[in-house]
Design a protein around this nucleic acid. Structure first.
Lengths: 229, 229
DNA sequence: GCAAAAGTGTTGTGGGTACACCCATGT
DNA sequence: ACATGGGTGTACCCACAACACTTTTGC
């Protein structure tokens, strides 16, 4: 940055790829556009960055305004700045991805008059702008990240069974895992608290419930423990 | 993106963390600021994004203009958008990092009238703006990335000895590696071509030269081979 | 002949993977 | 009693880590 010469400025937006687990599917939240261009097409929730708020705050605000979601896991993904990605004018967008507990946030869909819906991640229609590309990048990031950081818990209820957790990994990674090895590994990490509760309303033996111990996890990370699945 | 309402826009810049290998040090290229704020302080090379060029192109152009570097490895790092990161006005910056072959690009330093210099990565002064933070993030990214992608070759001459390669990894990762294990591993990956040449002008037995085979690497990646060091 | 780095194999161990059965519960 | 998933242990194999000496070359 060497000059304060006033260039015409690109517009700046944020867009969010919101993932939710709806067993047995991983879903993504999309919004139907009411305006041109791409009117009627599905798109990622997002909007302009205000001049007095940080990028993270923009993403949080947009999520709240467009989907009613609050306090979800949110992480910056990548910034997309191809010249022609918006036909109207130059728009650079900072993409985020979010993980939400559908168990906490039921019926997020119909906020305002806006048309919002969850789509299976393998079953998404053609999106507006370059949002397909952004969605793919987010999904890949999630697949990579979940393997060495325990972010998957953000998608599960706070209390969950080991089977649920394994399913989650299987769904995200799109491959099956061995039950015994999975349990050995995940319990060996020592970040799950075994609760004195079991699941209810199941037509078979009830499984034990566990909770993720974030504090313990942070301590272990500090000690350099590896959390690769 | 749901409205075309015209907000006041943040300014948008790119900043580059340029790494170069100057054995036995990993160095970073910095520019001394000639203007307020932070006049006289060292900062990352960078500048405003033009409205008719992509972010990648902006980064390339800034590198060329400010440092004379062309055709270097360049990758987007992260976008920094805290409200007060620039005291003059709201500026969002898309940070990149670059890897350059100092062997190809000697004496980059004094381009134009600008004051540019290479600093050891562990020996960088306090930088302008939030550039310290950006530099740290870039260094961490490099450390992580070099472990599972062969980007380190971008820092070496096209022909190099195994010792040079090992030193590179040791410098970047900041720890020593076992010679035999390193050679076994790296040769086992089958992406190095053994040349019929040896190094010259050394006061001891000359080491064989190798070349990185990018094409072969890409093929192997497609087959899902793992390149973790 | 000496200094300096090149080059080369083996062994132990820990972690990953593959694999099958009995148990508890609800209907 | 049966169906459904819960819960558990072992054996093999491979990849990684640790480790030291001989060879080549220039001076």
């Amino acid at each position: 940055m060497t000059s304060t010469y006033e260039f015409p400025r690109p517009a700046l937006t944020v867009d969010c790829v919101v993932f939710g687990l709806d067993e047995p599917d991983l879903k993504v939240l999309l919004i139907r556009r009411e305006l041109e261009p791409y009117r009627g097409k599905w798109a990622l929730p997002g909007g302009f960055v205000h001049v007095d708020e940080s990028l993270d705050d923009s993403a949080k605000r947009e999520l709240r305004e467009e989907t009613g979601l609050e306090k979800v896991f949110l992480e910056q993904l990548y910034t997309y700045g191809d010249v022609d990605r918006d036909p109207r004018e130059r728009v650079v967008t900072v993409a985020y991805y979010a993980l939400v507990r559908l168990s906490d946030h039921r019926v997020v869909a119909a906020t305002d008059a806006r048309d919002a819906a969850w789509f299976g991640v393998h079953d998404v229609p053609r999106l507006a702008f370059d949002h397909d590309r952004i969605l793919n990048a987010a999904y890949q990031r999630l697949q990579n990240k979940v393997r060495y950081e325990p972010i998957g818990f953000e998608l599960l209820p706070r209390k969950f069974t080991l089977r649920q957790l394994q399913r989650l990994y299987e769904i995200i990674l799109d491959r099956s895992l061995d039950k015994r090895n999975f349990r050995k590994k995940i319990l060996g990490m020592d970040v799950l608290e075994e609760l004195d509760e079991v699941e209810t309303d199941v037509a078979h033996r009830a499984a034990r419930l566990y909770r993720f111990n974030q504090k313990r996890y942070r301590e272990m990370v500090k000690q350099g423990v590896n959390f690769e699945i």
